[in-house]
């Protein structure tokens, strides 16, 4: 079995009466020759590593070696605990967990790339918030990771998932799009609704450039992960309410590819333009690497 498009994915799900996550699991069994339990076990290991990254990030006030990130997860965690957050518990917890993961990543701690390290905060943020606020079990979260990988698989093979290849729209954009689909599926939406949420989230991030200050996966990457979780929840809510993306998901992915191809090299993870080339961005680079730009 091979899934080449979101259209095909929805068709297979409907024909086989399976969720997106179940279709991924079936395809993985077939392609890898591993048995189902082994595959689920490998995915469980990834979920646990994600949890460990959240747990260590949430209480670590230290800064990254660069000095330009770190400690914000602790601040956000305290703020949310005081009941001050305006966004509601699903989004504010997802923001906190996402910050914790991305700060752990910047410290060169162990994380799980979902689909990349630069976008590693979004899925754990969303998943552990679903667990905390909606009683979604770890078993269901593991199935959610199969859903996410199926959606990411189609995006990655039709377009790209790295900032260097296609800008931040490919990285945070893909992760938020995957997360939106997972929320819908874990909340009982149909495969069609999940793919619809994926399209809506991706559309919201089209054109986003990759312009990391001093080339570090910190500014603006960490906060883009955090905001990516809110976009994922908003897109999922729209889809679960029955709102459809006017442009089908496969066409949105195609646009992401074209826009990424047209994006100047200076805005694709080379740190040669955008936020990286602001007065402050240049100062940070000079302080860290002593290079005048």
């Amino acid at each position: 079995m091979e899934i080449r498009s979101m259209n095909e994915l929805v068709e297979v799900c409907e024909r086989e009466r399976k969720t997106i996550g179940e279709v991924m699991l079936m395809m993985e069994e077939e392609k890898s020759g591993r048995d189902k339990e082994a595959i689920i076990g490998m995915m469980e290991e990834r979920l646990i590593k994600m949890k460990e990254a959240v747990d260590s990030g949430i209480k670590d006030p230290s800064t990254a070696p660069s000095g330009i990130s770190g400690g914000d997860a602790v601040k956000m965690h305290n703020y949310v605990k005081q009941g001050k957050a305006l966004s509601g518990s699903y989004i504010s917890d997802a923001m906190t967990f996402s910050l914790a993961t991305s700060e752990t990543n910047a410290r060169m701690g162990v994380i799980v790339a979902t689909p990349t390290a630069g976008a590693a905060g979004i899925l754990p943020g969303v998943l552990f918030s679903l667990h905390k606020n909606g009683d979604t079990s770890y078993k269901e979260l593991v199935m959610g990771l199969f859903t996410a990988s199926m959606l990411g698989y189609v995006i990655a093979n039709r377009s790209f998932i790295s900032g260097a290849a296609g800008g931040c729209q490919a990285e945070v954009g893909s992760a938020a799009a995957m997360a939106a689909g997972v929320i819908v599926e874990l909340k009982g939406g149909t495969p069609e609704q999940a793919v619809n949420a994926t399209a809506i989230a991706m559309k919201s991030l089209l054109g986003l450039v990759c312009d990391p200050v001093a080339g570090l996966v910190e500014v603006p990457c960490i906060k883009r992960n955090v905001i990516g979780t809110s976009i994922a929840f908003s897109a999922a809510d729209l889809s679960l309410a029955g709102v459809e993306s006017r442009i089908p998901c496969d066409e949105v992915i195609e646009v992401m590819y074209k826009v990424g191809k047209d994006m100047p090299r200076a805005l694709r993870e080379t740190a040669l333009d955008g936020l990286a080339m602001t007065e402050t961005g240049k100062k940070v680079k000079e302080r860290l690497f002593g290079k005048k730009s």
Binding site: V110, A148, I161
Partner: peptide, 11 residues
């Protein structure tokens, strides 16, 4: 897509 388990910061 989900993985690798890795030290940061960039896949």
């Amino acid at each position: 897509i989900i993985g690798p388990i890795m030290v940061g910061p960039s896949s």
